[in-house]
Structure formats: structure tokens, C-alpha cells
């Protein structure tokens, strides 16, 4: 396993609802252990791209690879096996409301591992402790706050020790401190587990805090117009839209070009 090996690769992906094209010609790859942020304005298709990556929506054109496996060409069993090594945190947690937090986390463990009930209990406790919810296993999702639901959702996403973690708008609906804590948690998980992380967000603070690389999806041209480290994109991206986006809509002078002109 090499560190710079492409873990997820997207080739010439076009996403569409019927005749309505959302994004076209997306090509990028995510390396092992990297944290990639998919950013862009509202309605640009960030979340739709995520749905394509995790096998919920079939591409109109193009392919999605996990390692060497084509997600959409693979047999259903292979696809399921791939998805088992992937954890997904949905926008509002998507916890199953008829189960307690502990049961939510135990479901994948019961279905896909041969662990005993006691061991499953241990794993559940560990995962809840990792997201700072130790002791909340007996609660139902409707009894806890939005931020706690997200953290519990993360605990469930991590239940099977996944290699890839997807986050859909992790900081949406959280107060700045909870959002920061979740960002720190994401960084901590990347550092300690070496997991590959893909985050869909438009929260600037999160983007700068967690991204090693960022992709910008544009609403108007319906394609990806920038890719790179967000700090570098802020000052050096030739697209003004991207610099403005990263600077809260304010003017962001292009430094690199200036330097080039001077040189």
C-alpha cells in the first residue's frame, strides 16, 4: 500500500437528472490518507457528486474507481463489500430513529462481523467514547441535540473501521464551537487512522482547517474549475470566482500572476 496511490478515482464523470446536466467532465483522484474537500456554491452539485461516489446515484457518463474496481461496473456483492469499507456521515446524522445510539452503531457490526455480543458492546462503547458521547448509548436520536446526532452518526460511520470516510456538510447546523470540535475530530481521525477522507462543505473555516486539497465545482460552467490546496487557491487561483468564494465574496487579488508579470 503506497501513500500516494490513488484511492478513489473519478474519470470524465457527468451527472444529470434526465436531460438536466448538473456537472460534466469531472476528473480527479483522491490519494490514500488525503483529506479532499469538495466545495462550491449552493446548488452546484456537491452533494450529488457525493451520491455518485457512494453508489446511490448512477453516473450519466464516466466512471468511478475504488483502487482498480469500477464501482458501477462491479457486481452488487463487490460494490457492497467496497461500501462496507466506507463510512458515511450524512448531513443530519441519518440515525435510525427507532433504535438507540448503541443499536445504531451495532447494526453494521452484527451484520458484517462475527464478533460476539459482548465484543460488539465494547466496540460500541469505544466508538461513542471516540466521538465524546460515552454513556449515551441508551438514548434515542430524538432525545439528543443536532451536534450530538452528527457525532453519533460519525460513530456509526466508523463502526467497521473504514478506510474511507465521507462527510456531507459536517458543520451545517452546528454552532462554531461544535463545528470546530467536529473539524478537530476529523483531523484527529485522519492523523491516527490514516483514513482517506472526502468532505463536502461550503464552510470556509472547515475548508481551511481540514483540507489538504480542495475541488471547486462551478454552478455556471457546470464543471470543476479549480483544484489544489485551499490556501494556495485563495491567492493563486486564476479563476476569480474561486478566490472570491474563498474570501467570502470579497475581492481577492491574484498574487501569483502579479509576480509572474513582474518576473
Amino acid at each position: 500500500m503506497q501513500a500516494n496511490e490513488a484511492h478513489i478515482r473519478v474519470e470524465d464523470l457527468t451527472m444529470a437528472f434526465g436531460d438536466f446536466v448538473i456537472q460534466r467532465k469531472l476528473t480527479f483522484s483522491v490519494r490514500r490518507g488525503e483529506t479532499v474537500v469538495i466545495m462550491g456554491g449552493s446548488g452546484c452539485g456537491k452533494s450529488t457528486l457525493l451520491r455518485h461516489l457512494i453508489g446511490l446515484q448512477r453516473p450519466a457518463h464516466g466512471r468511478v474507481f475504488y483502487g482498480k474496481t469500477d464501482l458501477w461496473e462491479a457486481e452488487p456483492e463487490t460494490r457492497n463489500a467496497l461500501m462496507r469499507r466506507t463510512g458515511i456521515l450524512y448531513q443530519s446524522g441519518a440515525l435510525w430513529s427507532s433504535m438507540t445510539l448503541a443499536e445504531n452503531i451495532a447494526v453494521p457490526l452484527e451484520a458484517y462481523t462475527s464478533l460476539s455480543t459482548r465484543e460488539i458492546g465494547d466496540v460500541v462503547e469505544l466508538k461513542l467514547a471516540l466521538v465524546g458521547l460515552a454513556g449515551f448509548g441508551g438514548f434515542y436520536p430524538s432525545e439528543i441535540s443536532g451536534g450530538m446526532k452528527k457525532r453519533a452518526g460519525l460513530a456509526r460511520a466508523m463502526a467497521l473501521d473504514p478506510e474511507i470516510l465521507y462527510f456531507d456538510e459536517p458543520s451545517a447546523g452546528l454552532d462554531p464551537i461544535s463545528a470546530k470540535r467536529l473539524d478537530d475530530l476529523i483531523i484527529e481521525l485522519r492523523e491516527s487512522l490514516g483514513a482517506t477522507i472526502v468532505v463536502v462543505t461550503h464552510e470556509l473555516a472547515s475548508i481551511f482547517a481540514i483540507a489538504t486539497r480542495a475541488l471547486f465545482l462551478d454552478v455556471e460552467t457546470r464543471t470543476m474549475i479549480a483544484e489544489g490546496n485551499p490556501r494556495e487557491l485563495l491567492t493563486r487561483c486564476p479563476e476569480e470566482k474561486v478566490r472570491r468564494f474563498l474570501n467570502r465574496g470579497n475581492e481577492a487579488p491574484l498574487r501569483a500572476e502579479q509576480e509572474e508579470v513582474n518576473a
Partner: peptide, 16 residues
């Protein structure tokens, strides 16, 4: 380092 960090994380918030 990963193990130590995860362990610290798991113990950061005491069991309620």
C-alpha cells in the same frame, strides 16, 4: 502515535 492519539481521544470526554 495513532494508537496513543485515539486512546487519548476516547478518554477525553469522561463517561457521563
Amino acid at each position: 502515535p495513532g494508537i496513543e492519539r485515539m486512546l487519548r481521544l476516547a478518554q477525553a470526554v469522561p463517561d457521563r
